[in-house]
Amino acid sequence: MKQRIKKYLPKFILKQYYSNINKRRYSGNAVECPICHSQFKIFKSYGVVERENAECLKCGSLERHRLLWKYLNEKLNFFEGNKPIKVLHFAPERIFFNEFIKSNNINYIPCDLYPEYFNYNEQVQIEKVDITSIPYEDNSFDFILCNHVLEHIPNDKLAMTELFRVMKPGGFGILQVPLDPNLINTYEDFTIITPEAKEVAFGQHDHVRVYGLDYKQRLENVGFKVCVDDFAQTLTKESCFKYGLIESEMIYKCSKEI
């Protein structure tokens, strides 16, 4: 039946068709996205191995985005300051991009190795930047956001070294990766090269490793002072469900000492 619908209906009608289905399926107010404030019965399932209560149907945020949003707003009061702050953002998620570009005190540089993949149609240009060779001077940025990027980078130590180099003394960054808390040591094997084999080994076809609990040490080895923040665990189980958060996810807040 689904194949017949896809075959005979134009794309714009298909989009409306599935939108109406989703409205009926997810209608409710048991969960709420803290970013776009939309409410649903439950968030949509998402992932290669599907996770329940994961994706916001309005803004597309996932658990990690909503956790960082609450962390930046509620614990760090990041958007309330008046002091000018220079921000470097790798692989810029639209939900954070929108907030950063409208903040008057933020000098914002979004970047990616493939900026052509980001069709935001905004006046702020996404710069072409290789994270292992960042084209900015030492001690340039007050804040760096690098969310689920390093697992794609073969030479992650060089990338971390570059992130540390361009961070200002007294600055900080949030450097999140998918991490397996059951692994003591990060697992990587560069003889695994096909997308199919990478998906089996690392959980996704474009990942090159699975980080373990030594991730903190890997960051410290290049100079960062690392605070592993259990912010999600300070919230109630009811709040974690309501906002679609993973209770066990830690936040890696990395700073550069003065």
Rank of each mutant, 00 (worst) to 15 (best):
Q176A: 14
G170T: 00
W69D: 11
Y26T: 12
H205C: 14
I174A: 02
P178I: 05
S140N: 13
A201K: 06
H89C: 08
L68T: 08
I131F: 01
I13V: 15
F164K: 06
F43I: 03
K83W: 03
P10N: 08
S45G: 12
L235W: 02
I193E: 13
L67E: 05
C111Y: 01
Y46E: 12
N182K: 15
S133I: 07
R25F: 10
L245M: 00
N182W: 04
Y117K: 15
L113C: 11
G223Y: 00
L150W: 02
D206L: 08
E55C: 14
Y114C: 09
W69P: 11
L150P: 09
S103Q: 14
Q217M: 12
L14Q: 11
Q16F: 15
I192E: 01
F241W: 06
T186G: 03
F79M: 06
S45Y: 07
Y114E: 12
D180P: 09
I106A: 09
D142G: 04
L179S: 09
G244A: 08
G171L: 05
V222M: 06
K168R: 10
I42L: 14
R25T: 14
K225Q: 12
D130L: 00
I21D: 10
Q204A: 08
H152I: 03
L68H: 04
Y114W: 04
E188K: 10
D112K: 06
Y187C: 14
E196M: 09
I251C: 05
R209G: 11
L62R: 08
K256N: 07
K253S: 07
F96Y: 07
E127Y: 06
C59K: 03
C36G: 01
T236F: 01
V228F: 00
A197D: 13
P181M: 06
L163G: 09
T132R: 10
G223E: 02
N139I: 03
Y108N: 05
F96E: 05
V210D: 05
L213S: 12
G223S: 02
Y71C: 08
R94T: 08
G81Q: 13
F202Q: 03
E80V: 00
D142H: 01
D229T: 01
V31K: 02
L76I: 06
C146W: 01
N155G: 01
L179V: 10
I42D: 15
S103P: 09
T186F: 00
N29S: 12
E188D: 11
N29Y: 09
H207T: 05
T194Y: 00
D180H: 05
H148Q: 03
E116N: 12
K128R: 12
I109A: 10
F100S: 05
Y243F: 15
F202D: 04
C36T: 04
N82R: 12
I193K: 15
E52R: 13
L179W: 02
I153Q: 02
K83M: 07
V49F: 14
H148F: 01
L76R: 09
S27F: 13
E249D: 15
P84M: 03
L179E: 07
C56Y: 04
K86I: 02
